[in-house]
Nucleic acid binder design. Structure first.
Lengths: 137, 137
DNA sequence: AATAAAGTCCACTTGTTTGGTAGACTACAG
DNA sequence: CTGTAGTCTACCAAACAAGTGGACTTTATT
């Protein structure tokens, strides 16, 4: 299961995708529409900005906005930006790999099963983009 | 990512699968071979026993063992027994479903994407069984 | 019956995540 | 120069995850 933080990040990105090209969107606006605690969202958006997915404008008329077209960012990328590994085990994670203490990966059945799972998941999440998160909500 | 607890549970079940039919296996034995903290493993095995996957024998010559052939328990089942939801979001979970506060699922793009992901994951994890976790480690 | 082996159960610590509050500072539009 | 809005820092606390320690019960064996 994705962490709350990652879930909120995806919701916020989906909302911003819907507003792409319309200028900066207020944190408070996103928080209200997507039912996210304002202060928590603040730190999430800041992380996404540091990752380069978002940019912001301070002062009146300010807010957050996507740095590029929502079609150019895949869900897999978005999830990784807020720190969520996609694989079910550390030993099959591309970006958060960690070796098992107890097994030889070449012959580990668990490793094999989870590798297949990760590939199937990635195949989907790399094709879907932020543009697909736009909806009528 | 699966929780440590779930990861340990799968490792332990894999080990017990390899010993199926050979009588009870000591907690300490599993812990040592799979590098799991003994006390933590203790609570995990207890949960699996209460779920019916394992049974135990107390006293000398006691230990834990699978209640049925490793081929009869899928990885999806095993994961769910120790409390781990398989879906990436609560709103697409079969066993731990929770409605989103902020979206209409029928038109939610995130929901759709995660549903497809969950189905792909489940398809794999429901086919793989504990027997496939047996290896030479 | 005594003993040792082994699972069971309860309490506790430690650390992280999640959610929330408060306040000061910076940038910018009007 | 004033108000708006993001930035940053510092807390707090409830809930959960991970891990530890110790006392208790059951059972086979001697």
């Amino acid at each position: 299961m994705l962490s709350k933080k990652t879930q909120y990040a995806l919701k916020a990105l989906g909302y911003l995708a819907g507003k792409y090209g319309e200028g900066p969107v207020l944190i408070a606006d996103i928080a209200k529409k997507k039912k996210i605690p304002v202060k928590f969202l603040e730190t999430i958006l800041l992380e996404l900005k540091q990752a380069g997915v978002l940019d912001s404008k301070k002062g009146k008329g300010g807010g957050y906005y996507l740095t590029q077209s929502p079609k150019k960012t895949s869900l897999a990328t978005a999830i990784r930006f807020v720190g969520g590994p996609i694989a079910l085990l550390p030993c099959v994670s591309l970006n958060f790999y960690e070796k098992c203490k107890d097994c030889n990966e070449a012959v580990c059945g668990l490793n094999k099963a989870m590798l297949i799972t990760r590939d199937a998941t990635l195949k989907i999440l790399e094709k879907k983009t932020l543009a697909e998160l736009i909806d009528s909500n």
